[in-house]
Computed example of a mutant assay.
Amino acid sequence: MTDQSLGPALVEEATKKSGLVWVRGTGPARALWHVWHDGAAHLVGDGPGEQPLPGLVDGGTAEVTVRSKDKGGRLVAWTAAVRELSPGTEEWDAAVAELKGKRLNAPDGEAVPERWARECRVVRLDPRSSTTDLPDGSLAAVPLPTAANTRRPIPAGLPKLLFRKKKR
């Protein structure tokens, strides 16, 4: 646990600098891109072509884990109050202006705010507790069974191709 006087500053600085946070609402944690604006993390999703936001319910809570941008390790974890912003409000417009600037490869370019207002949710994660204890272990989920990750024997000719000596 970190010093409580440094907690809010640590949460803000770490979250601002990280382009990706791990958020766990009522389901498993998910990696989500966000923007830090006006003292909170803002997310957009749950629409066509946008990130899913499962388990983030208006009025609920979420656990946010912030990773280091350069090393990828966990820096800080904090509890957030989840609040969905309503399209057309001043707060929604300000958050969407920040999110639009960070959204990469938007298919509709300048029209993205209108699409978000029609088809997506903009969620604000307000820090409730400045820091919580970092979780132990890797937190990696076991991959779902699929034929894509099943190992098969290597072809008989592959070692000859890999280990043959080059002629001079």
Rank of each mutant, 00 (worst) to 15 (best):
residue 1 M to S: 07
residue 2 T to W: 12
residue 2 T to P: 10
residue 3 D to R: 04
residue 3 D to Y: 03
residue 4 Q to W: 09
residue 10 L to A: 01
residue 13 E to T: 07
residue 14 A to C: 06
residue 14 A to N: 04
residue 14 A to F: 03
residue 14 A to Y: 00
residue 15 T to K: 02
residue 18 S to P: 01
residue 20 L to I: 07
residue 20 L to V: 14
residue 21 V to A: 13
residue 23 V to L: 07
residue 24 R to S: 15
residue 25 G to W: 00
residue 26 T to I: 03
residue 27 G to L: 04
residue 27 G to Y: 00
residue 27 G to E: 13
residue 30 R to I: 01
residue 30 R to A: 08
residue 31 A to I: 08
residue 31 A to W: 14
residue 32 L to G: 13
residue 32 L to F: 11
residue 33 W to F: 10
residue 37 H to K: 13
residue 37 H to G: 10
residue 39 G to F: 08
residue 41 A to I: 12
residue 46 D to K: 04
residue 49 G to F: 02
residue 53 L to A: 08
residue 53 L to P: 07
residue 55 G to H: 04
residue 58 D to T: 00
residue 58 D to C: 01
residue 59 G to I: 02
residue 59 G to D: 02
residue 59 G to C: 00
residue 59 G to N: 02
residue 61 T to K: 08
residue 62 A to T: 08
residue 62 A to M: 05
residue 63 E to N: 07
residue 66 V to L: 11
residue 69 K to S: 13
residue 70 D to R: 03
residue 72 G to S: 07
residue 73 G to R: 12
residue 75 L to R: 11
residue 75 L to N: 09
residue 77 A to E: 09
residue 78 W to T: 00
residue 78 W to L: 05
residue 78 W to I: 00
residue 79 T to I: 01
residue 79 T to G: 05
residue 80 A to V: 02
residue 81 A to M: 04
residue 82 V to L: 02
residue 84 E to P: 06
residue 85 L to D: 10
residue 85 L to H: 11
residue 87 P to W: 12
residue 89 T to C: 03
residue 92 W to F: 02
residue 93 D to H: 11
residue 94 A to T: 11
residue 94 A to M: 03
residue 96 V to C: 05
residue 96 V to N: 03
residue 97 A to G: 05
residue 99 L to Y: 04
residue 100 K to V: 12
residue 100 K to S: 15
residue 101 G to A: 13
residue 103 R to W: 14
residue 103 R to K: 06
residue 103 R to H: 14
residue 103 R to D: 12
residue 104 L to V: 02
residue 105 N to Q: 14
residue 110 E to K: 06
residue 112 V to F: 07
residue 113 P to M: 10
residue 113 P to N: 09
residue 113 P to Y: 07
residue 115 R to K: 11
residue 117 A to Y: 11
residue 122 V to Y: 01
residue 124 R to Q: 13
residue 124 R to C: 14
residue 124 R to L: 09
residue 124 R to G: 05
residue 126 D to I: 01
residue 127 P to V: 10
residue 129 S to K: 10
residue 131 T to N: 12
residue 132 T to W: 09
residue 133 D to F: 09
residue 133 D to P: 13
residue 133 D to A: 15
residue 134 L to S: 10
residue 134 L to V: 09
residue 138 S to H: 05
residue 140 A to E: 15
residue 141 A to W: 15
residue 142 V to K: 15
residue 142 V to C: 11
residue 143 P to Y: 02
residue 144 L to T: 12
residue 144 L to H: 10
residue 147 A to E: 15
residue 147 A to I: 11
residue 150 T to A: 11
residue 150 T to C: 12
residue 152 R to P: 05
residue 152 R to C: 05
residue 153 P to D: 13
residue 153 P to K: 06
residue 154 I to S: 04
residue 154 I to Q: 03
residue 156 A to N: 04
residue 158 L to H: 04
residue 159 P to H: 04
residue 159 P to R: 06
residue 160 K to M: 13
residue 160 K to W: 08
residue 163 F to P: 02
residue 165 K to A: 08
residue 165 K to T: 05
